[in-house]
Design a protein around this nucleic acid. Sequence first.
RNA 1: GCCCAUGUGGCGGAAUUGGUAGACGCAGCAGACUCAAAAUCUGCCAUUCGCAAGGGUGUGAAGGUUCGAUUCCUUUCGUGGGCACCA
Length: 1149
Amino acid sequence: MEYDFRKIEEKWREDWKANKVYKVDNPSEGKAAKPKFYVLDMFPYPSGAGLHVGHPLGYIASDIYSRYKRLKGFNVLHPMGFDSFGLPAEQYAIETGQHPATTTEKNITTFKAQLDKIGFCYDWEREVRTSDASYYKWTQWLFLQLFNSYFCNTQKKARPISDLIKKYETKGTKDFTTTEWNGYTKKEQQDILMKRRLAFSSYGEVNWCEALGTVLANDEVVNGVSERGGYPVVKKKMRQWYLRITSYADRLLEGLEKVEFSESMKEMQRNWIGKSEGAEAEFRIENSEFRINVYTTRPDTIFGVDFLVLAPEHELVSKITKDDQRPKIDEYLTYVKSRSDRERMAEVKQITGCFTGAYALNPFDGKQIPIWIAEYVLAGYGTGAIMAVPCGDQRDFAFAKHFNIPITNIIGDFYNGEEANPTKEATLQNSGFLNSMLMKDAIGVAINKIEELGIGKRKVNYRMRDAGFSRQRYWGEPFPIIWEDGIAVPLNESELPLELPFVEKYGPGPEGEGPLANIEEWVNLSWEEFLSSTSVDLTPNLAPPKSSGSSTKEKGTDSALTYGYVNSTVEEWRNTLQFAKDNRKNATEAEAIMWEQLRDRQVDGFKFRRQHPIAGYIPDFVCLEKKLIIEIDGEYHNDDEQKIFDSAREKWLNEYGYTLIRITNEEIKNSLSNSIKKIKEELSKIKTTEEEAQTDSPLLRRGVGGEVKRETSTMPGYAGSSWYFLRYMDPKNNETFCDRSASDYWNQVDVYIGGTEHAVGHLLYSRMWTKVMYDLNLIGYDEPFKKLVNQGMIQGSSRFIYQFLPIAAEPGGNEIIHQVDRQIKPIFISLNYFIKLGKNEIDWKEIFKLSYKQENLNFNIPEEELQYYALAAKPIRFRVPVDLVDGIELDIDEYKKRRSEFKDFIFLKEDDGKFLCEPEVEKMSKSKYNTVNPNDLVDKYGADTFRMYEMFLGPVEQSKPWDTKGIEGVHRFLRKLWRLFFDDLKGKVWNNDKATDAELKLLHKTIKKIESDTENFSFNTAVSAFMISVNELSDLKCYKKEILEQLLILLVPYAPHIAEELWHQLGNEGTILNATYPKLEEKYLVETSKEYPISINGKMRTTISMDINALQPEVEKIVLENDIVQKWLEGNQPKKIIFVKGKMVNVVI
RNA sequence: GCCCAUGUGGCGGAAUUGGUAGACGCAGCAGACUCAAAAUCUGCCAUUCGCAAGGGUGUGAAGGUUCGAUUCCUUUCGUGGGCACCA
């Protein structure tokens, strides 16, 4: 019986699928739950190119670990999904017109088929896709949680924005009083709140390309022009959404202490957050009331300040520049403006700057300090101004030298005049009250002094900025936001998901807006949407007003059924709002008196609004919390006809839960207190639930008329990936993003596997979201990933060949005098000729001659003509597809078949007839012709071989170039394993014999090694341990079920198919995945003797077998009797004998 | 410029806390089986001197600590990745 891996693997894949062996259940209530374990891969972006061998590396590692944990008795969650929103699909759509949803769907199908072939244990019922409306509904919902939250600086956590509003309304802040707050317009209030929301809108600079009419990502801009087309790109201010991740800077730093990430990963995140502690200090400017605030981490060096530098954009620049310096400053400012950020960053060597003519005064000794501006100081960091200490900072030093600014030395011998020394260990000199202090001690002293003098304060600074959260693109989550007269109004939860509308064209909208801006009917809400998104019915009365003359008051004119304003279009609703506005200006005397009593929460703290439309009706006063309406009635209400209207209106209001009380003009004028008392009584009578009490005005949601339109940008790629790990726990829930019981059970991701490229982006954002969700009590933990394993990148191994096109040139000149000459054929040269050329060991003339000779062609070009060709000879480098290369040898015939234009070219081969390519390691990518498709390898060797080979390549964390060569070895191993069970000739060889001690020792040695290697993600050494084990079992001719069965269980995580097959061949029922992991029995591993290495002066010379329990005296005796040791001693006594029990012996001579 | 990682045979890579450098595999060489090939099996395989026994040299380079260093320290060079001229 042969190892027919194709049949076996297909059989078991189908069996596993049919029996749902990978289905993972959340624990049902009351049932005792197994311990959980959550293994997560970074889900892929389903690109059109499909998987290449680099992708599965991490997936195989996580699959092995998941299966291992399952065998160890855990309930393992190991899901997979797709990060399916993103730019490539949109670009592809622009190029081909295919809708991103279509191509994405297609790509996912390909990905899934590829993944399934490798035999991963995903429970596909838990698959998530970020571009599915059922998924992004919750991305939008979470965005609204961010939008509706603020960061409380005292509690250091997110809290509902309503808490902040309450505070503003009742207590005020240091910036405004309660009265001021209540007096602000809604727009003003919302603008203030926007400055605190965790998801907020603000203006920011983007890369704007006028020619393409679009905003570009940083990597789409190359050297100041667009990558596509090379059009100029400028900075443009646009309204953008941001996440206030800076508020979480400290907690993101602290959180790193309690997660298992690699040190380098933590370091990268720390650098990104860039926390620095220092001080802000004020420098007075000579003869001026202005002061410059600088931020410094080294206040100890303050006596070494020789100049100040402002960022060119600093607001004080124009104010302090002296007249005689102004032309120069202006010139410099023009220069800086012409330079892109990229240029300002790129040219490190070039020192530029300009003196303002103004001087600052050192706050401690009053020394005059010249003030400069320079582009190396950035406006966005710190205060945009620095104090320059040339003896301690290399950049400041270079600047001082360049502009001949005298340098003060405050560190004595530590400064050599040649370069700056940023030490903190020097003893300070020339430093006033800090003299003779150690710099690192002086930092604190200096800060204290600064604070004491009131010229500054201790300050913590962060490099990290708030995260841009909007993209002017189509293929992303639409924002659940409607703009109403410049106010961002969130959608109701019931309106989610806000689905991405279908479009035909993906081009940018007007003014750099995203493609969604082109869809008018989507941007401008329809009346139905407008209605459905409000919290009350706005159309109680659809009948139109009779005539324009008499219908501006609420009194109807023709029938009892007409009692309100008509709202059947957005336009009409705006009219109603306008009427309400007008009404407020034309209050009656009684209304005015009453308003003075009701405003500003004077009545028992309840908020009243006046002339505030409730649907098609505008009451005089309304308290929305209690749904209490107060009408101030004039005499016409005594009119019979009006009474009909009034009672009909009241009935309608009652239906909507409103209470109405009427007070006449006279009552107010005669007895105001009675009227108020009446209102108070009514207020206390009405019982409202907490929820009702918090209901916002329906108008808060739908503006005060004017412009109403949807947000047209979409969310960035990391929106969906910031929380997907939670959705896997409860993927189908339509009531909530993830049920709390599910997130409590599965808890944190125990092991997260993925590449380092996400070190600062995705990992920081998802950590932030998790913290927000935790603060808002949506989940029970504030770090998403307990342990992170970084898989290395599998690089491609490209192959290059060199071509020589014979183009003749005039001697001494570059001008080409002949194009391709018919007489000389184009030539490809094998690698060694190229190397020889580089070393001038051969020249082109010889290459020509050799090539012709190789092809048996007559070479008849005169020598004097030949030199023209040689002069112009420059080899052209070509990539060749790696699948045509064996090692570095190119299959010329196949290559000529594929590239027919080369069929008549000469390929100059090596002496042994081989044509060699130049290898180079690069990123694996389709465009570099160096991708290897896992499917091809699975077809050829099987999934088990492929899995084990990927692991065998080296440590998971390490980057390495792909090389298919070694896969044979792993395949041989599996076949050798198979032969322990079945022999090609003899058939079944496994038996039920009792295992010997030696065999059991081998088994348990293997268990120990495999278990610890798997636990430590050292899969490459585990594979080699399997090989050793199988080799030894073969040598022992051990075909015993007792041993082999255990070995199979160890092997399941690595090679699940063959393990399952042999498990069943041994007569077992049910999947091997439900087997129990072998238990290590130390007793089989006990050794009695040890082969000690014997070193002479640290150099190993021989080994001696000794009792494991032997002690120093007997060991010394045995060792000294040894012939080899004797020889080295040459009759002398050793100086010392070092004996480490169980390790080694070293004889020192 | 700064930060992180990394450097071991022809190749991928092994080597608990400092304790036999090169496990395992690939490639290569020699041999067995075979009409032959495939498959399989056996042996050799860092380098150098030597017939051998046995030595010398070897973990990017140079120093250091140590009885002993691939491992720890200092300096330095190369490669890969990240960044922000970040005060």
